[in-house]
Design a protein around this nucleic acid. Sequence first.
DNA 1: CGAATCACCTGATCGC
DNA 2: TGCGATCAGGTGATTC
Length: 271
Amino acid sequence: MPELPEVETVRRGLERLLRGRPVIVGLKTSGKKLRRPIPPGLKRRLVGRPLLRVRRRAKYLLLDTDTLTLISHLGMTGTWRLGGKRRPHDHAELFLADGRRLVFNDPRRFGLLLSCPVGQEARSRWLKDLGCEPLDPAAFTGDYLYAISRRRKLAIKPLIMDQKVVVGLGNIYASEALYRAGINPAARAYRLSRSRLEKLCRAARAVLGEAIAAGGTTISDFRQAGGEAGYFKVKLRVYGREGDPCPACGEPIRARVLGGRATYWCRRCQR
DNA sequence: CGAATCACCTGATCGC
DNA sequence: TGCGATCAGGTGATTC
C-alpha cells in the first residue's frame, strides 16, 4: 500500500497528533506476529516514556521517545489511527497519559513494529542497507544512478524500486516517474544515459512531491493518520490505467508484468 | 555476485 | 448468489 508519500503523510499526521508530547502509559498487542513478532519486552521499555517526535527514513516511521525509537513499517496494509472502536486486525494499542489511544492496524501483517535505542535506527538490520532518499537532490542525482547502474543488467523499473539503491519508490510511483521521464520501464538500466537518468531523478522528485502535497494516494485502504483518504489517485497518469488514452498522445496505456509487478506505460512516449 | 522467484497474510474483485 | 482463482501499494529469504 504505502510508498514514500503515504508514509510521509502518516508521519505528518502523527506528528501533529503528538504535539503535546504525551507520555505512554500502556501497550496492548494482539499476540499475532507481524512480519516479525512485536518484541515481548516492548511494553516495559515504553511505559513512562514521552513521545517526542516522528521521523521517517525510507518507508519506515520512527517514533522517538527520550530513550528509544519505535520503528514502524506499514507493509502493504498497515495504518495508524487515533482511538475509536476496536477493529479486526488491531495489533498494537499505545495508551497515552492524556487518555488517547494510538492504534496500529494491519490485516495482512506485512508490517513491522520494533524498537531500538533512541536515534540508533540506522544501525538496525532493517535500515542499515537502505539507499538514498529521493527527495534529497544532493544525493539522488543522475550521476548517482549512472554510477550504480553501469553493471546492472536488469530493467530500470525494478532498479529504482530496489530500496538498496533509492528508497520510497514502490510500484505506483516507479511507473509514474518513468512515465514523466519518458523512459520505458523495461529499458535495461545500464543502457540509459546520464542525462536521461538525471531526468528520471527530477521526475521522481516531482511526482513524490505532488503526491505528498495531495496527502498520498488512496487505492483501497490507505488512510492518513486522521483516517482521511489521500487524493493523489486522480492525478495518476498511467498506474492502473490500462487501455486508457495516454494523457500526452492518446495512445492506449499498456500493462505488463515486470519483475513480478504490474507495470503501466505508454509505448509512444516511453522509449 | 546479480537476477528471478517464492513466501509471508487477508480481503476485494473477477469470471463462471 | 456462491465459489474458486487472481490480484493487491512490500520486502526478506531462497533459488538459479
